[in-house]
Simulated assay, not measured.
Amino acid sequence: MFHALSFKTIFFIELAIVWLISHSSLSDALQERHHLHHMITSMTKGHSFNFSHLGLCDDGKISHYCNEVEAWIRKILIVDDSTKAFADSHDYRDWYKYELYELSNCTDSQCSDHVLQRITGCKLDKLPDGSVNLTVFDEYGFDGEDLISFNYDTMQWIDKNPKAKETKKKWDRQTGYNQFLQSYLKTCTEWISTFNNTNKSSPDVHVSVSKSPDDESKLVLTCLATGFYPRDVQMNIRLNRIHLENQTSSGIRPNDDETFQMRISVKIDRNHEGSYDCLVTHSSLIEPVTVIWDRTCIDCEIWIVIAGVAVLVLVLVLVLALFGFFIFKRKRRNGRVRNSSSYGTVDDQIQMASSADEIRS
């Protein structure tokens, strides 16, 4: 879970970890899933102490602090922020520094390179039957190894490293954490709800068709929805408003601008005359979007054009060959006429030859 690497690369590693955790079931688009993560890294490097905090809500960055920049960047989405959906953890740098030094057995004047990391947050799942599952998690790592984590079911800390024995005893005695946990459950839900309601983007839907690579009688109809937020979306390709079976999906994938995209495809009969469309349902839409296939096939038309061009080139080659043949025949015939007119008739040529013999004698 945790990696003891350089301070500048730690953010990218943590982002990859969170992305993999939150997208472990991308193919299940019918289940609405949200998450809030806070990733905190404290690091000693010689005599220096570095601290950073990165907050994410459904993969969108909502907060960022790094003491190398000495600036707290926060995307404020709640006008009345009395709920404190997440704490300004940079105000607790001294606490993380103390815990890191205690685990490392070092002081300000003498300390080697060590890293203490924390990933905390909540996950919210809205199931198809309307029920909601909400869980929180809090995990710590030290020098690239799992250290200690909180078990929400037992309300106890679990030590995962011999160095966490004393930490577990100390933290288990802190009853205030349970109160914090209950408050966090409430504020986490409010924050996710607020973030998703204020950061919505409607999908841009496109329908296209291409030739089937393995069956000339089939076409592949593809529906692409992109630029939508939040990530949960439902898509279906239909024939005469009936959902088709055997649809394949790319799963929900992130775009560079913190929005998402999804692509579904299905093979259809090339000669079927029914009406095909793509139906997309998303929370940003007042009503579902339907895009109808206009019966065009760019891939198919390209091959028709290529075939037409090939036939045209062949015709031109044949015409040029015939034209060249007639010219050649004409030149040969003209050459014979010129030779005959230059030397006269056969009798003239015999007479010219006799005169030449008389002159030589």
Score class of each variant (00 low, 15 high):
A321L: 02
V346W: 01
P203K: 09
R173N: 11
H90G: 03
Y343F: 13
L20K: 13
H3S: 11
K163Y: 10
Y96E: 13
L285K: 02
Y152Q: 15
K160C: 09
L312I: 12
S109A: 15
M262R: 12
S48V: 00
H206C: 13
N133Y: 11
K169Y: 06
F51M: 04
E14L: 13
S63D: 05
T259R: 02
L285R: 05
V319S: 00
K8C: 07
I359F: 14
S355T: 09
D125G: 02
I242C: 06
F326L: 13
I192V: 15
D159M: 08
N151L: 05
D143N: 15
K45R: 07
E14H: 12
A4Y: 07
H38L: 10
T135K: 07
E245N: 13
R295C: 03
K170D: 07
L124P: 00
N67L: 09
Q234I: 10
D28I: 06
K97H: 11
H272W: 12
N246D: 14
L124N: 03
T175R: 12
E258P: 02
L181R: 15
V209Q: 13
N133W: 03
S250G: 05
G60E: 13
L314K: 05
T83W: 14
H35I: 02
I62L: 10
L244C: 04
K126T: 14
A356V: 06
F260I: 12
D153Y: 10
D28M: 09
N199C: 09
I302Q: 07
T107A: 11
I78L: 14
A225Y: 04
F195A: 09
H64L: 09
E145F: 02
R253K: 04
F328G: 08
I17H: 05
N246F: 12
D256S: 15
W293E: 02
Y152D: 14
S342P: 01
K75Q: 14
T345A: 07
K218E: 12
N161M: 03
D125C: 04
T175V: 10
N339Y: 08
R74I: 04
L100G: 14
S340T: 03
C297Q: 00
C223L: 03
S202H: 05
I298T: 06
N271L: 04
T41S: 10
S249H: 06
G335E: 07
S27I: 01
E166K: 10
F260H: 14
V319W: 04
S89T: 15
G60W: 09
Y65I: 10
V18M: 02
D159W: 07
F150A: 02
I302N: 04
L318I: 06
L224Y: 06
T187Q: 03
N196R: 08
S250Q: 03
C188H: 01
P230S: 01
D214H: 11
R336M: 03
I252D: 05
I62T: 12
F180C: 08
S24N: 11
R360Q: 05
Q247W: 00
D204A: 07
S249M: 05
H243F: 03
T175Y: 08
K170R: 14
R330C: 11
L185F: 15
I21V: 06
K329M: 13
F142Y: 13
P162D: 12
K186H: 10
I242D: 05
L77T: 12
